[in-house]
Design a protein around this nucleic acid. Structure first.
Lengths: 344, 344
DNA sequence: CTGAAAGCGCTAACAT
DNA sequence: ATGTTAGCGCTTTCAG
């Protein structure tokens, strides 16, 4: 039989005192409420003895706090996001928060629905990798003083907490690194998106190419085509039409994967002959042949910063006066074989 | 300002009827309670108009149901588990359930703590990839009639719902496939674990080797050594001591990764000369050179079955009479270049 | 110093 | 056919 958990009332009855006193003691307000040392100890000991766990649902109903955070990403099965989730999970648990992960597939409707679903009262805070068109929804969350942090990307001009990386610099450095290794016809394969992170990556590339007096070669694949699995076709066609490329810079990990598939299918040697860099690291990159250079995001640092920004918001009663923090973190270029100068 | 959500009482007042009526209508019990069509429609329309969302916390407190499921795996950042999570997430949302993912690191203490944390009342059901020593905890959950399904592995002799794959058959088939391709000195690299899934994989391998009159070559690495990142060292040493191996069967995806790293570091050609199979597929396997044969678990089927088993348990008031289901699913051997007969 | 009691929003047994 | 009300377990104001 399901044993009914003990309630604060049971404790009170057992100890022949009032629920108030029990509640005060259990919430560490014994001192503040001038409750005697002996009584305090008695309550604490008994609670420990019976291994008392407060009913969090009741607590939530009363306090309006659920100790639940929502961590909404594009796709939790994506290596980058699942790694991030894993680290954030630990940090959150440490602070007494549970995390609900969900995937919005970069789709506005799904994202909106999800945010509504965790409708305002049930969740203490949101960490969101926003899809392109939910700016209004985010703005409303902010207006309603709900703790929210944008992750990975943000909306230009919208005043909201965010933790992102310096995409432009990362992309510039990666491109420059290819150029330093004698590559001249570097292409940039990305999604057709004006989201901040892609915008930054594109501009970093363009800047590096321009500064070095080279020609840009850009492929931007519509996101819904990628969803449909058409990414490979686009890349294949692009490679066929641009035979003189000598290096490829993939702006996301899934594009890198598709790209490598195409190269592999076309001609195994291509992978060795081209300069190759991928945005976002992958464990397999270091055992590929050649090993693949990547732009690695600082996963631990991102997660830590998220919690650092989130915690004060959760603590405060009224966050309407808090200024929004915009954290920009540096990436690391992990140089491996694929981007080094080729000896022909 | 945070706008206060409308409550069922607000609706009642606005419509000048009682909360009961509103509650009944909103819970689809209008017919059952003989509430007039007009009133029903009025309530429904108004609720829609103001976009009413019930406070789920209050609902939970009252009903004891939270619409929350816990999905506890070894490590959510592991590709296999994150893929599974992604699919299960969708299926659960469809049924109105939210999912809390967490990682137990295959550690008993962490697993126990997590289960206690989601202490019995707050969560409607558990899906658990159990660490080796939490048999008692699971048994208690079962005794307390809490819906729980074991995933990926189970405890011999413990009567509990489970969804697993036929590890022994999968492993036998994979090994036999290597043998069919003329490999004679096939080694099996695994963890030192008597958990059911590893036991099955080991036995499948042993059986296939024996049936074919070959010698087994087995490396079992202690799990805590793997955690410490010592996996590669063990594998390296094993390869050095067994120079005559012509094929390797990795029992998990992280071991395959470590193994490939070792092979790569030792001698790039080894990867092409050895027969190679990995348990659990990975997107990168099909673009590796050579492409890598793997035993793929049926992710969608697993997730579907989990929900199929879970839903009835969630619905029933008393599940003490239900018989526990043990679902065993078939895997698929995805044959790629790495396991085909080598032309020397 | 301690206790009584209101009330968070909802459901459902009971009343009318 | 619809309304009144108790109560889920907790926090916290107010009273003693």
């Amino acid at each position: 039989m399901k044993k009914k958990p003990v309630s604060i009332r049971n404790i009170a009855e057992e100890l022949k005192i009032s629920v108030t006193t029990v509640s005060f003691v259990l919430n560490g307000k014994a001192k503040e409420k001038h409750i005697s040392k002996e009584l305090t100890k008695k309550v604490l000991d008994y609670a420990k003895l019976i291994n008392y766990r407060p009913n969090q649902v009741a607590q939530s109903l009363r306090t309006g706090k659920s100790k639940l955070l929502v961590f909404m990403v594009e796709d939790i099965s994506n290596n980058f996001f699942s790694q991030l989730a894993r680290i954030f999970e630990d940090i959150a648990y440490e602070k007494g928060y549970k995390v609900i992960f969900c995937s919005n597939e970069n789709d506005d409707d799904k994202a909106n629905e999800l945010i509504t679903l965790f409708s305002f009262r049930q969740v203490d805070g949101f960490i969101i990798v926003p899809s392109p068109g939910i700016r209004d929804t985010i703005e409303n969350l902010v207006k309603d003083n709900i703790p929210v942090i944008l992750l990975d990307r943000f909306y230009e001009g919208l005043d909201c907490n965010s933790v992102v990386i310096d995409n432009e610099q990362a992309s510039f450095d990666a491109t420059q690194h290819l150029i330093d290794n004698k590559f001249k016809n570097i292409c940039f394969i990305s999604t057709a998106s004006d989201q901040s992170q892609m915008y930054g990556r594109l501009h970093g590339y363009e800047k590096a190419v321009e500064v070095n007096g080279l020609e840009p070669h850009i492929l931007q694949i519509p996101f819904n085509e990628i969803i449909k699995g058409k990414g490979k076709e686009y890349i294949k066609k692009f490679f066929e039409q641009n035979k003189d490329l000598d290096a490829v810079f993939f702006s996301t990990n899934y594009l890198a994967q598709s790209g490598l598939e195409v190269l592999k299918e076309t001609n195994q040697n291509l992978i060795k002959d081209l300069g190759l860099i991928a945005f976002d690291d992958n464990d397999m990159f270091k055992i590929y042949d050649p090993t693949i250079t990547s732009v690695a995001q600082p996963l631990v640092e991102i997660s830590t910063k998220l919690m650092e920004v989130m915690l004060p918001l959760l603590k405060k009663k009224d966050i309407s006066e808090t200024t929004h923090q915009k954290i920009v973190l540096k990436t690391e270029l992990i140089i491996r074989e694929s981007s080094l100068v080729k000896q022909k």
